[in-house]
């Protein structure tokens, strides 16, 4: 228990948070990497997933490729790209995107697919264009699953962003690995607790967002 107290002491000391290598900067980097990776992934995966869900085309390829990339060990991808691209942010970014794209893609196409076909037919029968059907009917009705994919991707990336420090980038992995190297368990533990809190808080925010959206009429 002493180590927990030491860790909490370290986390709760203002000095640990300030300065160029402080927890504040590291937590900011951690969030920035995560949002950047999820944002870039969503830019590609959301339109692709909506297209697949709407047209049913390319579904087989999407299912197989998401399955394959899910089995990929992230640490392997990070270290492999780091050997090619050098240390820094490139390698972890590539790995995060590889990790995030399948979740967002799967959420997007299953969200659109889950919409009752009769509703889609009714929308089409009313004379809605394919674009109106997608944006006005399928996306709002499938929003819960679509957001679920983004939520899962965010969680995965926030968790994995710790590994960015292993190949020389920043983030909360920095103090974690520093503690590991210096046999400073309190520092490792403190950094771990901050990562866990960050992940749990982000997930709770998503849960709240999903709940608020579900209350709006016309979405499910």
């Amino acid at each position: 228990m002493t180590s927990l107290l030491e860790a909490l002491d370290w986390v709760l000391t203002a000095d640990s948070w300030t300065g160029p290598g402080g927890l504040g900067v590291r937590a900011g980097e951690h969030l920035l990497y995560s949002l950047l990776a999820v944002g870039l992934s969503a830019l590609v995966a959301l339109p692709a997933g909506l297209f697949i869900g709407h047209t049913g085309r390319g579904r087989g390829i999407a299912v197989v490729s998401t399955g394959v990339t899910r089995a990929l060990p992230t640490l392997g991808v990070i270290t492999l790209v780091a050997l090619a691209a050098g240390i820094g942010l490139t390698a972890p970014m590539v790995a995060f995107i590889v990790l995030a794209v399948p979740s967002i893609l799967a959420g997007a196409y299953s969200g659109v697919e889950a919409v009752d076909p009769q509703i889609v037919d009714a929308a089409r029968a009313q004379g809605m264009s394919p674009r109106q059907v997608l944006l006005g009917v399928e996306v709002p009705l499938g929003l819960r699953l679509i957001l679920g994919g983004v939520r899962l991707a965010t969680l995965q990336v926030v968790a994995t962003a710790t590994l960015a420090a292993y190949v020389g980038a920043g983030g909360l992995g920095r103090p974690l690995f520093l503690g590991l190297r210096n046999h400073d368990y309190a520092m490792m533990l403190g950094a771990s607790i901050v990562v866990i809190l960050l992940a749990v808080v982000l997930d709770a925010l998503f849960a709240l967002g999903q709940r608020l959206l579900a209350r709006r009429p016309g979405t499910a």
């Binding site: 969680l155 926030v158 533990l189």
Partner: peptide, 20 residues
């Protein structure tokens, strides 16, 4: 499942008395 894996590996010894 929302808990990141690497931090859990590090926090668990606190509860189990194991070593990392």
């Amino acid at each position: 499942y929302a808990i990141p894996s690497l931090p859990l590996f590090i926090v668990l010894p606190l509860i189990l008395g194991t070593s990392i």
